[in-house]
Amino acid sequence: MDGTLLGDDGLVPDAFWPLLEDLHRAGILFVPASGRQYQTLHNIFGEHEGLIYIAENGTNVVQNGISIDVEPVESAIIAPIVDWVRATAATGADLGLVVCGARSAYIERSDAHFVSQVRQYYAAVEVVADVQAAALDDVILKLAIYDPSFAETRSGPALRELDLPSEIVVSGENWVDVMRHGANKGRALERLQHQLGISRAQTMAFGDYLNDAEMLDASGHSYAMANGHPSILARAVNIAPPSSEAGVVSSILAALPHLQGEPVHAR
């Protein structure tokens, strides 16, 4: 979403909505894939027919409001991650933790700055006294660590040094996600392809950051956004215009020119 489909204003480009209708009419499935939770993605896209969501970096695939593929974290990794975040924050580091459940996200840190950062990605969020206790009553999909400016150089490497049975990915400039070992957007996409009978050659994917790598690999038509991370630019087959120029929309229309003849509808 951020850096890929959304513009600099954080909104979906106006030109996307008629394209989404044209894709649906043409029998082409559009799948929002994001580190964001399902509830947030649903709030963005609304009740558009035919959408399937790959949420929480591939750990929750949702169709018609029902989770059809879930990969929860190993419960044994929750306590060590919580302890590391608490201990590191106690040294003065600007860190925050989001325990991401299927029903809601849970946070202990409640200052306005952190809460505002969290609410960009988690529409359903609760401030609790103890995130570990809250986790007992939900299916925990991932743990997201907020580390402004140091996600790739501090939190990412430090969490890997804990040597837990988990998948650790820097999902944004300020975020590191910890998930079940092997879980990622690409694996979720591959299972969805298998379920729907859609081949890799029939799949187009767009991404800009490190958590998009496996998803691009699972697509026969992979696009890195021009504003993307250098490793993603090197990994993709194609380069799309930047998200600030609605690069996803223009790239789809360039690849599927017959859609440009479809009538445009207001959202």
Rank of each mutant, 00 (worst) to 15 (best):
R154T: 14
E152H: 12
V131C: 11
D163G: 11
E152G: 06
D147L: 02
D177I: 08
V170G: 11
P157R: 08
D138M: 03
N184C: 14
V127Q: 15
R180H: 12
N174L: 03
E152K: 14
G172W: 02
D137S: 14
L162P: 10
K142W: 08
S155L: 04
R160W: 01
I168T: 12
A183Y: 03
L141T: 04
R180V: 01
Q132M: 03
D147A: 14
A124C: 10
A129E: 15
A133Q: 15
L164A: 05
V127Y: 08
P165Y: 07
D138Q: 05
K142Q: 08
I140L: 07
D130V: 00
G172I: 00
A158P: 03
D163A: 15
S155Q: 08
R154P: 00
A158Y: 00
I145K: 05
D137Q: 12
K142E: 01
R154M: 13
L162A: 04
L162H: 08
L164S: 07
E152A: 14
E152S: 13
A134I: 01
T153L: 05
E173S: 10
A151P: 11
E161N: 12
A134G: 04
A133L: 09
G172A: 15
E152Q: 15
L162Q: 10
E126A: 00
V139Y: 00
G182A: 03
A151S: 12
M179V: 00
T153I: 14
G186I: 04
S155D: 12
E167Q: 15
K142G: 00
D147H: 07
V178N: 13
A123L: 11
R160S: 13
W175A: 11
A151F: 02
L164M: 06
A134Y: 01
V170F: 04
I168Y: 13
S171A: 10
D138N: 12
L162E: 12
V170S: 15
E167T: 14
V139C: 11
R160M: 11
V169D: 06
D163R: 10
L162S: 06
E161R: 13
G182K: 06
E161K: 14
R160C: 14
S166D: 09
L164G: 11
A151E: 07
G172E: 10
V170K: 13
